[in-house]
Simulated scan of single mutants.
Amino acid sequence: MTDATLRATPSTAREAKLVTYARLAKLDVFDYYLSLLVVLSAVLLPIGGFDLAVLVTLGLFGLGAVLMTASLVAFDDLTGHRDGSDTANYRANPTLRRARRKPLVTGALTEPEVVCFGWLTAIAGAAVFAVAVATAPHAPQWTVWLIAANFVVGIQYSYGLKISYHGFQEAYIAALGWVMVLAPYGLITGRFDGFVLVQALLFGLGPLLFGVYSNTNDIAGDRAVGRPTVAALTSPRGNRRFVAALSLGEFLLGAVASATGVAPWWFVLLMLPVTVLRIRQFGIGFGPRGDILRARAIGFTAHRVGAALLVAANLVLAVTK
């Protein structure tokens, strides 16, 4: 697929500008926002004591997260377009990775438009987060610092300091998921909980375990621009071991939590469907067929199943207390 072909897609040329900006913001990828359901399930019961202010806090935090993430991915696309990595990566597999998800690659948006969108959503996100903290039932200092640090680092992910270009990409992908659970829980309850921490860690591993498959697919493009992901820095064998370790670590986290009493004894059994999906994902991605993008798609399913099981775990625990 040539640059001319990428820019000559009729459907892209005709679509409304609003839809193009939605593509830029990656609004169809809602996986991080599932954290709101996980947190809600942890505080919902008993229903008689539920405070409607919780929904306001969750709604504001969620809106702030959407705006911040929109800014993050817009700046990520801007940097990827400027260094040529997005064009190279999307040209490599135009059927499975649709180029029109990258409006700069197709020419549907210009760089000034993306920069403006990135800063407007960043400013709006900061304002909404501030309102969420100011109106929350609780605002412990650790929660406020967590939100602020995550926001500052997120905007710098591929822009400004470009932390993802200095070896911290995988760490931030997971950390964003951790914050998306811990921060709103802290705003609502004012406390820190061991089982919620376990859930946050598992939730953050979900996006990481489809992100590392994306990185495996993008090795050539990332190496060309000096983006040091684990996949780009190591050998195929080293990368395979890294992904295997993450997949095993996800299972062990739940197992150890159940064994030590941080989580209910049955928690590790409840999460077994995710483990089965991880085994299948790894086999498809790193087995004889080496279908990395299909394995990546399974990662989305595994994360969504995992989020649903975390919700179930919270509800069962509340009912059986």
Rank of each mutant, 00 (worst) to 15 (best):
T79C: 11
R14I: 00
G160Y: 05
W119C: 03
T87K: 11
P103R: 12
F75I: 05
G59S: 05
V153P: 03
I155M: 07
A139W: 01
S85E: 09
A132R: 06
K102S: 04
G154E: 06
D77Y: 12
K17I: 09
P103D: 15
R101Q: 08
P140K: 01
A134V: 12
V43S: 11
L37V: 14
G59V: 00
D28S: 14
L60G: 10
R91V: 07
L44A: 14
Y32R: 02
T121R: 06
T143V: 10
R23A: 14
L78E: 06
G125E: 04
G80V: 11
A124H: 06
G107P: 11
S85Q: 01
R91C: 02
V19I: 12
P140Y: 00
L18W: 12
F61L: 04
E111T: 10
T87C: 10
L34N: 12
L96G: 11
V38I: 15
P112F: 00
V54C: 15
L146W: 10
A149M: 09
L104K: 15
A65D: 02
A139K: 00
A16F: 02
F50G: 14
T143N: 06
V105H: 05
T79S: 15
T69C: 02
R98V: 06
P103V: 13
P140T: 07
L45P: 05
L34A: 13
G48F: 08
E15K: 07
L24W: 02
A122W: 08
V39I: 05
G118M: 10
V128Q: 03
G125V: 02
L34D: 09
A42Y: 05
A92R: 13
V56A: 15
V153W: 04
F30I: 15
V19L: 13
L60T: 14
S35C: 12
V43A: 08
A88I: 05
W145Q: 01
L55C: 04
D31S: 11
V105E: 08
R82E: 14
L120Q: 11
A99F: 13
A130R: 09
G49L: 01
D86T: 12
R23W: 10
A99C: 13
R82S: 14
I123G: 04
S85P: 00
A70Q: 08
V128W: 06
Y157V: 01
P112R: 05
V114I: 10
G49D: 13
D76K: 00
P46R: 09
P46H: 09
A124S: 07
V128Y: 06
V144Y: 01
A70V: 01
L146P: 11
T106F: 01
V153N: 01
A53Q: 10
E111I: 03
Y21S: 05
N150Q: 08
L34R: 09
F50N: 13
F117D: 08
